[in-house]
Design a protein around this nucleic acid. Structure first.
Lengths: 229, 229
DNA sequence: CAAGCTTAAATTGCATACAATCTTGACGTC
DNA sequence: GACGTCAAGATTGTATGCAATTTAAGCTTG
């Protein structure tokens, strides 16, 4: 699926990872020059990577004004999560029909890695939480479904980066574990229920925290009206 | 959503339309030079457009070997249609909940345009058939869902271009009309049934016609073994 | 001192040049 | 005549240069 020359691939992948791990926060400007310099290539390749990221909805490019990490609006957030629930329900239903021993192992192994990253307070934990859902999609064997889930999970991560608490892991690991159990037991109803609850919980993590609900300059500044703190 | 400079947008849009209207068939090589020359721009912009089309799954780029209209495999075809049914079912269910008079009008108006294009044997009819489904998605008000449906419909069109009869309109217009009626009546069950049948019919149009099921050179050549014809 | 204007710096838009790689077709060998 | 080799041509990979646009700063003015 991926292509273009390998070099721009590397830049694309690095930027993507940095965004998903919240090292590059929404709104951060991404000048072609700096990116090129960072990776030791020219603007040409930097731009190519940015164009691809724009296609993924992770970056916004405004003509003549450069690229920046996308800043999903609050309305988009609800939209994204609604569709994500739809897609992941499809994943669960497909998985419940046939779940191999290897698949269960792969999932358990992934969760172990998540736990390790969380204990180490590694930024990887944020990305791994999302990748758990992508792994689920992969196990359906459907390339298309995997691609779509990957997209929507990426957008979700971006939304959490914008609206969620800093460094909050995206997902509760216990919920991942519960989901694996339900899938192993081929308990379709329970699996769907857990997934729905799980995604609502993730969404709430954005909702309940209005750290940046709107970049309402007035509201922000009003907190700085009193002399000091 | 779209960005980059307007000029590469135009190239992207033109190429996309040409592919969806089957003017550019799967497998057709797309050299940067020719494209640039055609549109009166340099390879730079041609390449940018190709990279974006690759992101849409409409074009395949192999490093150092150039771009070509993507050739979905038969397996991909089934995969695509399965996911498409999932997404369009979601569209129907959302639409059944609330269907405005204006929405019905928009759909009827679109179908009229489809009929006109079919009567005129215009290649536009192929694209319009797909756009009916995108219009449905738009009417849900969900940008995300619309984007995903747009993607999957595009892929479907490509598959029909590869496996279907030449110039066959993608969709039966009567089915579109029936669907509108069911939606207007808020008859969820019937709407879902029609949509499922409709998509199966579309898929069958690819299945039953093995004009190019596999580019099996041996099989093709075997037909040319006897002296002449 | 706010608001507008002017200009310099920064950044992107795009074409082009050169290197690297792939494709081809000619040529010679078996 | 099939097959392998090799050079010429075609095509892509990438950096860079110049023009155009945006942004920021400084300056003037009411």
């Amino acid at each position: 699926m991926a292509t273009t020359t390998t070099r721009s691939d590397a830049i694309y992948a690095s930027l993507r990872r940095a965004i998903l791990e919240q090292a590059l926060k929404p709104g951060t400007k991404l000048p072609e020059d700096s990116i090129g310099e960072t990776f030791g290539v020219s603007r040409t390749l930097a731009k190519a990577a940015l164009v691809r990221l724009e296609g993924d909805g992770l970056v916004e490019i405004r003509p003549n004004r450069g690229a920046a990490v996308a800043m999903p609006s609050f309305a988009e957030a609800e939209d994204v999560f609604a569709l994500r629930r739809c897609l992941e329900r499809e994943v669960i239903e497909r998985l419940c029909r046939r779940m191999s021993k290897d698949a269960i192992d792969a999932l358990r192994s992934h969760v172990r890695e998540e736990e390790r990253a969380v204990r180490a307070s590694s930024p990887r934990s944020i990305r791994l939480a999302g990748e758990f859902h992508i792994l689920l999609a992969e196990l359906t064997g459907s390339t298309e479904l995997t691609g779509f889930v990957s997209r929507i999970v990426s957008r979700s991560s971006l939304i959490l980066a914008r609206f969620g608490r800093p460094h909050s892991a995206e997902c509760g690991i216990e919920e991942h574990i519960g989901l694996i159990e339900a899938l192993a037991a081929q308990d379709r109803a329970r699996a769907v229920r857990i997934m729905d609850a799980h995604l609502h919980a993730v969404e709430d993590r954005a909702n309940t925290d209005d750290s940046g609900r709107e970049p309402d300059v007035g509201a922000i500044l009003s907190r700085y009206l009193s002399p000091t703190d």
